[in-house]
């Protein structure tokens, strides 16, 4: 709510309208992207892949439309749940800790270790998400009620804040996912080297670096990292 309040406080009539329009357009663009991708993923990857393999286009279109409606309903529910957090950032952090941290571990392992297998990655994802949920269910930030903010199984320990709980959950999910994916990969059959061509870092042909230094991703990454450190030091 900081941006709209700031706009209302400081912008004169004229620029205020433009600012609010830009803000709304930005929000609408984000929502439209989310709704479209939800309905596409549901229709193509779930409905068409598992539920109705030979469905006609007309039916798929209807399913996609209703999936968009369902996605909006789900996001209403998620917004109501997120309101119980002190800040929406904590809710996003929780979602990222449960969903994205295991995904990140599996992705890293798959990109840099050629022995990693699909079964290992899937087991790692499930185990990481389960560990994250378990950790979230067993710990409660100080001064909060058990429920969506944690402690819905039983309260074993108290992190100092929502942020500490979210970061701890994410780290645990990442580590568990990494270990389980590596262990399961070692017990399943390795993929052939030809299949992995271009997918794993060590098996991908790298063109010689001919770009100027300011066009290379490494230089950009280092610059962004330094800028982030500088910004943290300035606003600490």
């Amino acid at each position: 709510m900081a941006t709209p309040n700031m706009l209302l406080q400081f912008l004169p009539a004229g620029l205020l309208g433009l600012g609010l329009t830009a803000l709304l357009a930005c929000l609408m663009g984000g929502v439209a992207a989310g709704v479209t991708s939800f309905s596409t993923v549901f229709t193509c990857d779930i409905f068409q892949a598992f539920l109705a393999k030979n469905a006609a286009d007309k039916r798929l279109l209807a399913v996609a439309r209703w999936a968009a409606v369902g996605g909006m309903m789900l996001s209403f529910a998620a917004a109501c749940a997120a309101m119980r957090f002190d800040s929406p950032l904590d809710a996003i952090l929780l979602v990222f800790a449960v969903v994205n941290a295991p995904l990140f571990a599996a992705l890293l392992l798959g990109a840099f270790w050629r022995r990693a297998t699909g079964h290992g990655a899937f087991a790692g994802l499930i185990a990481g998400a389960a560990a994250a949920l378990l950790h979230h269910g067993l710990s409660l930030p100080r001064g909060e009620q058990p429920g969506i903010q944690g402690g819905w199984i039983t309260v074993l320990h108290h992190p100092s804040s929502d942020l500490a709980l979210g970061l701890g959950t994410a780290m645990l999910a990442f580590l568990v996912s990494l270990l389980v994916a590596a262990a399961v990969s070692l017990f399943t059959n390795a993929a052939q080297a030809e299949e992995l061509n271009g997918l794993v870092f060590s098996l991908t042909a790298r063109p010689p670096a001919i770009w100027a230094w300011w066009k290379r991703p490494e230089a950009m990454a280092a610059a962004i990292l330094l800028a982030a450190i500088a910004a943290s030091l300035i606003f600490i």
Partner: peptide, 28 residues
């Protein structure tokens, strides 16, 4: 549009009391 509006309301102090007297419409 914004520049024209800013020029037209330049002498009107009420409009710009919010933005601390700066003609933000004209600038932006």
């Amino acid at each position: 549009v914004l520049t024209a509006f800013g020029l037209a309301t330049r002498s009107n102090a009420d409009v710009y009391s919010k933005s601390m007297g700066i003609d933000a419409n004209l600038c932006w």
